[in-house]
Nucleic acid binder design. Structure first.
Length: 305
DNA sequence: TTCCAGGTTGTTG
DNA sequence: CAACAACATGGA
């Protein structure tokens, strides 16, 4: 663990090489309808759940080489154990463990990645810590435009999530699988997602409530394909969603949602192609990205905004 | 109005 | 196995 210092306001966490806070903040700011955190000029505020405790934190940059985590409200995390958990959460969220040098070395000579790397230098794959949230977000976002996906997420979170309040503002906690597992699709009828999606989300919640689907279990596989197969067995989770979750939540470096509409559009944009690239063409380009497929995808997505 | 969105399932040939 | 309709709604 990259400890870190403490002061009376909170914790300071050392940032890694090739990390640009502003660039990552810009990513977090990409959609004004995001409801899971609030991004300001130079800080981000959100609820973090640690050992069943909820705390509202503000994360900002300090001295250009630290992230400062300041506690605003909620549970006071004062034991060493809790503080270490916060540090791990933040490190994991911003993917501090990954050494980006090989990616940049490879990508700077790659016709598809070259521009994105220059433009988003220091960007990390921002994680989705909560597996249930990652799965729901994947299912919710299937086959609809991103703007609408954010609307659906907001409706879902505001109906079934909980909040911490601070200075008159509400900060949301994603609905728990325990709560959702007890619902029927009719209970969610005022959320504008298809009945099928409502069923999928509830079924996934039930699996998780039973303990049959956990991060630990999915991290246990050493091969992406095995984890993908485990996920795609679940109704509502196809190859795209599985790879999306393996990328954003479980951090498989070779997770690759190859059918993604955004990826296709990003490739069209970067190459200037008029038609959609075929899957085979994408595979051909991606053959140079071995074990960096997830980063390549994430950077290419970024080109679209 | 039409087309397409960070797809998946279930059916049909 | 490939092709295709159905799903539901919003944004451009």
């Amino acid at each position: 663990m990259r400890i870190c210092k403490e002061n009376k306001h909170g914790i300071l966490i050392k940032t890694p090489e090739l990390f640009d806070f502003k660039t990552n903040l810009n990513y977090l700011q990409r959609n004004p309808n995001e409801c899971m955190y609030e991004v300001g000029e130079d800080k981000i505020i959100r609820v973090i759940e640690i050992n069943q405790l909820r705390t509202l934190v503000c994360i900002s940059e300090a001295d250009n080489e630290y992230l400062a985590v300041e506690f605003l409200a909620g549970a006071r995390l004062e034991s060493m154990e809790d503080k270490e958990a916060i540090v791990r959460y933040v490190e994991e969220w911003f993917d501090f463990e990954t050494d980006l040098i090989p990616f940049y070395k490879m990508g700077s000579k790659d016709p598809l990645l070259e521009q994105a790397i220059e433009r988003f230098y220091g960007l990390r794959i921002i994680g989705l810590h909560d597996l249930f949230e990652a799965l729901c977000w994947g299912v919710l976002g299937q086959q609809i435009n991103l703007t609408f996906a954010y609307t659906l997420k907001r409706q879902f979170v505001e109906k079934f999530g909980e909040t911490l309040e601070y200075k008159g503002k509400k900060y949301w906690i994603f609905p728990s699988f325990d709560k959702i597992s007890g619902l029927s699709p009719e209970d969610m009828s005022d959320i504008k997602m298809t009945k099928k999606k409502r069923e999928y989300v509830i079924d996934i919640a039930k699996l998780m409530a039973k303990g049959d689907l956990t991060k630990e279990k999915l991290l246990h596989f050493d091969d992406l394909k095995q984890a993908e197969r485990e996920l795609t067995r679940i109704r509502g989770i196809g190859p795209w969603t599985a790879n999306y979750v393996l990328m954003r939540c479980l951090r498989y470096p070779d997770a690759f949602p190859i059918d993604d509409a955004g990826l296709i559009n990003a490739i069209k944009l970067v190459t200037g192609m008029e038609r959609k690239p075929t899957k085979e063409e994408i595979r051909e380009w991606a053959s140079a990205w071995k074990n960096w497929e997830s980063y390549a995808t994430f950077y290419l997505w970024r080109m679209l905004y």
